[in-house]
Simulated assay, not measured.
Amino acid sequence: MTRRAAITGYPVTHSRSPLVHGYWLKLHGIDGTYERVGVPPESAEAFYRDFASSGLVGCNVTVPNKEVAAQACDDLDEAAKAMGAANTLWLDEAGRLCGANTDGIGFLGNLDQMAPGWDENCGAALVLGAGGAARAIVWALLSRGIAPVYIANRTEQKAKDLAAHFEGDSKVLSWDNTGTVLENVSLLVNTTSLGMEGQPPLEIDLSPLPTDALVTDIVYAPLETPLLAAARARGNKVVDGLGMLLHQAVPGFERWFGVKPQVTDELRRLVLADLGIAP
Rank of each mutant, 00 (worst) to 15 (best):
A72M: 04
Y34G: 08
D119M: 07
T192D: 04
T33M: 08
V57M: 12
A130R: 08
T8D: 09
D176Y: 08
L275E: 15
A140L: 09
L162S: 10
V68N: 03
L242H: 06
S186P: 05
F253S: 04
N110K: 11
V127D: 06
E224F: 05
E224H: 12
G104H: 07
N60S: 14
D50H: 05
P116F: 07
I218M: 02
G9D: 00
L242W: 11
L25W: 13
E42H: 14
L202I: 06
G117K: 07
A86H: 11
A124H: 06
N121D: 13
L223S: 04
Y10Q: 12
G132T: 06
A133L: 01
S17A: 10
R255G: 02
E254W: 05
F253V: 11
R135C: 04
L141R: 10
A46F: 01
A100C: 08
I151K: 12
T13C: 00
N60P: 09
R144P: 09
L76F: 12
V57R: 05
A44K: 01
P210V: 02
G22E: 04
N190C: 09
E45C: 05
S186I: 06
Y150V: 00
T102Y: 05
D169P: 08
L19K: 00
L227G: 14
D212F: 04
A159D: 07
A124K: 04
D31T: 02
A70S: 04
P148Y: 03
A130K: 05
F257Q: 13
A273T: 13
A136P: 14
L242F: 12
Y10R: 05
T192L: 01
L188Y: 10
Q262V: 13
N121Q: 13
I204R: 08
V172D: 04
A100H: 03
N236L: 10
K158A: 06
P40H: 03
A233S: 15
V20N: 03
M244Q: 02
R3W: 06
D74G: 15
G195K: 09
L223N: 01
I7T: 01
T2M: 14
G22C: 06
L162V: 03
P40T: 00
R36F: 00
V238N: 13
G9R: 02
L214R: 12
R96T: 01
A221R: 12
R16E: 08
L188T: 10
A159M: 02
V127W: 02
K237N: 10
I137W: 02
M244Y: 00
F166D: 06
M114N: 15
L162W: 09
A213Y: 10
R4L: 10
T180P: 00
R232K: 13
I218G: 13
W118D: 07
I146C: 12
T155E: 07
A100Y: 04
D31W: 05
A164F: 01
S54P: 03
L56H: 11
M114F: 14
A140C: 07
L275K: 14
L56V: 11
P41N: 00
A100V: 02
R269K: 14
N101E: 01
D161I: 09
R36D: 00
S207T: 15
Y23S: 13
L97V: 07
P64N: 13
P251L: 04
T180S: 15
A249N: 00
A94I: 00
E266W: 01
M244W: 01
M244D: 07
D217H: 11
L76I: 10
R36G: 00
V149I: 07
E120C: 04
T2G: 02
E167D: 12
A79S: 11
T62I: 11
D77G: 14
T264R: 08
K237A: 15
P41V: 10
